[in-house]
């Protein structure tokens, strides 16, 4: 029983942060048809920025709880600055290229951003335990859990609900859906596609950075932080269906739970199971679990 609860909560927490990161990736893919490898760098940048800022404000005598405010600051800052720079200087000159070549260009961006982190933050790991300490522990079914970890589930829910609302209940959402549906038609209708792109890319980048920033207090933030998360997010997005937001939720749950079960029951299969699921989904349902099956157009 204890084990079951632990697996469930571990799985939910893991799914939550995966969802936050992957939904940014899938949003960018859905609108811009770019599979952004550099998304892993937004995650890493978010984590570094948050850890750094938490350390700074903590040293200036702010309470541990107050340092939490640095998480959204880091996410928004990284998203706006990096997202806007990359979209404006790089991606907008490549929309005419083959999509796989664009993936490669984002891989190049990933390499560049990885080293930029080292140049800015150095090679030593950062620890920013303050927010985690501030929230303390709670007992669930006789098992002690960190409140901070559980709060990640709430954050993921909040992200999911706000995105749903933004897409379905706002003008911006309707514009976005029009662009997703047919980019050319949307531009004929007078929609400023270029602005939709940059807004989408910045929001996607913010979500990636938010995932990293929120995870930062629970781990040591060290070089190579974004390498693993990017393939995990790819797995999530592929499993759910590329470009589908509900799909990202389903995919994150599948990956998070599968991994939590593996970690506790079959530790040697921890990574294997995630990618095996990804491969199986691609083989039997290449459009992903959630996307409606489309006939291949030839």
């Amino acid at each position: 029983m204890d084990l079951l609860i632990t697996i469930l909560l571990d799985g939910l927490e893991f799914s939550s942060y995966l969802f936050i990161v992957a939904v940014g990736l899938t949003l960018i893919f859905g609108v811009m048809k770019i599979l952004n490898v550099a998304h892993g760098s937004f995650y890493a940048w978010g984590a570094y920025a948050a850890a750094y800022l938490i350390g700074v404000v903590s040293n200036h005598g702010f309470t541990d709880l107050a340092t939490m405010a640095m998480i959204p600051v880091a996410a928004i800052g990284v998203g706006v600055v990096l997202g806007a720079i990359i979209e404006r200087t790089l991606l907008r000159h490549m929309y005419h290229l083959d999509e796989v070549i664009i993936v490669l260009a984002t891989f190049a961006t990933f390499l560049i951003l990885e080293d930029t982190i080292l140049l800015v933050f150095g090679v030593d790991p950062y620890f920013a335990y303050q927010p985690m300490a501030a929230l303390g522990n709670v007992e669930i079914g006789g098992i002690g859990r960190l409140v901070y970890g559980l709060s990640m589930i709430l954050l993921a829910l909040a992200v999911a609900v706000s995105l749903w609302f933004a897409l379905n209940r706002t003008r911006w959402g309707r514009l976005l859906k029009a662009v997703i549906h047919d980019r050319e038609m949307a531009s004929y209708l007078g929609i400023n596609v270029s602005r939709v792109y940059i807004v989408t890319f910045v929001i996607g980048a913010m979500l990636g950075a938010l995932g990293g920033a929120y995870v930062a207090p629970t781990v040591s933030v060290a070089p190579g932080f974004g390498v693993e998360v990017i393939v995990l997010s790819f797995a999530v997005v592929v499993i759910g269906g590329m470009g589908s937001i509900p799909g990202a939720l389903i995919g994150a749950m599948v990956v998070g739970m599968a991994r939590a079960i593996a970690v506790h029951q079959f530790p040697e299969l921890e990574l294997f199971v995630v990618y095996a699921v990804m491969a199986v989904v691609l083989v039997f349902r290449p459009e992903g679990l959630f996307a409606p099956a489309k006939a291949r157009k030839i």
Partner: peptide, 24 residues
């Protein structure tokens, strides 16, 4: 498979092997 799906399926296969090797 073609295009991005070809790329992603190859990636998945390679990561399966990676997942096995790092835990063996």
């Amino acid at each position: 498979y073609r295009d991005i799906f070809f790329a992603m399926l190859s990636l998945a296969f390679s990561m399966v092997l990676y997942g096995i090797l790092v835990k063996t």
